[in-house]
């Protein structure tokens, strides 16, 4: 097989969708969640369980995982949007930790072994996902659907109100918008799309493990989004591909991956705060204007 290794791109695509979903919340809603791993992981566990134990076909398993994340998003969101800034972040982090310990203890997740050997099955009864290329194009389609949905959300009236709330919440309220409702909907949408990413990832890797619910994963998605460009449409995709490639190249360096990504984070925050895509867009605008 020539070309770029498909499994690698599938992983990057899942994380790109995850980062896009996260970006919907922070880039357009101005809400920094530090617990987004819980949505990725929950959907992963539920879809892996659905596919392996209940024997559901992959599309239903992914749907089940997404629904679970959506429900968790509604619950967490209802609690978290009552507070702002650091308190919002702390509530999401605390919820994510509770969810992590739940998955660590509960028997169906298999503890630190994770749910293994998840069957990929046949999508819609015809697409044999055990073929790498079929799986690849299914993942690409899922990613594109999620990506375009986010773009649509951002440019809808709903998205405009969300941006207004991000810029000046009291003014948006004074204009008659129910800010809490908008924030909650944004939170649930973000959780649902993170869920799609997590569920797809579980089917691709035939595995759901604690890595996806750990707090490090919540930090990683913040890093991807910031590096690529928070509040830009393509930023999270670029950020996710950059970070996943780095991890891939440096896999034999072990824990150095963490050090290097940390250093990149510092450089990014200090030197180019708009992220890769944000800086490029600003440079382009300046050249033209």
């Amino acid at each position: 097989m020539g070309g770029v290794y498909p499994v690698f791109i599938m992983k990057a695509l899942c994380f790109a969708l995850f980062a896009c979903a996260f970006n919907l919340l922070i880039g357009f809603g101005g809400l920094l969640s530090f617990g987004h791993a819980m949505f990725l992981g929950t959907a992963g566990y539920v879809s892996a369980h659905a596919a392996k134990v209940w024997g559901l076909p992959p599309e239903v398993a992914i749907l089940a995982g997404t629904l679970a994340s959506t429900a968790l998003g509604a619950l967490t969101g209802a609690l978290a949007i009552r507070r702002q800034g650091i308190y919002f972040a702390m509530i999401t982090l605390a919820m994510a930790q509770m969810i992590f310990f739940f998955y660590l203890q509960t028997p169906f997740t298999g503890g630190e072994d994770g749910i293994q050997s998840v069957p990929r099955g046949r999508m819609f009864g015809v697409l044999d996902l055990s073929n790498v290329l079929v799986m690849y194009y299914v993942v690409l389609a899922i990613f594109l659907a999620g990506f375009l949905a986010i773009r649509r959300i951002i440019h809808s009236p709903f998205g405009q109100v969300l941006k207004a709330i991000r810029e000046n919440e009291p003014r948006a309220i004074s204009l008659g918008y129910d800010a809490d409702r908008y924030k909650l909907i944004a939170f649930v949408l973000s959780a649902a799309l993170s869920g799609v990413a997590g569920a797809t990832k579980a089917i691709v890797f035939q595995l759901a493990s604690l890595t996806d619910v750990q707090w490090q994963m919540s930090g990683e998605v913040v890093l991807m989004t910031l590096l690529g460009g928070m509040g830009t449409v393509f930023g999270p995709v670029v950020g996710a591909f950059t970070i996943i490639s780095l991890e891939h190249f440096l896999a034999d360096r072990g824990q150095w991956v963490t050090v290097i990504t940390g250093a990149i984070f510092v450089v990014c925050v200090l030197a180019f705060r708009r992220g890769i895509v944000g800086e490029l867009a600003a440079w382009w605008a300046k050249r033209r204007g």
């Binding site: 499994v7 493990s209 824990q255």
Partner: peptide, 18 residues
Amino acid sequence: DHQNKPDIGSGIARQWYD
């Protein structure tokens, strides 16, 4: 180095074989 993470380990194994 699989870093004790099943997803990293399985990714490496897949790539090695593929």
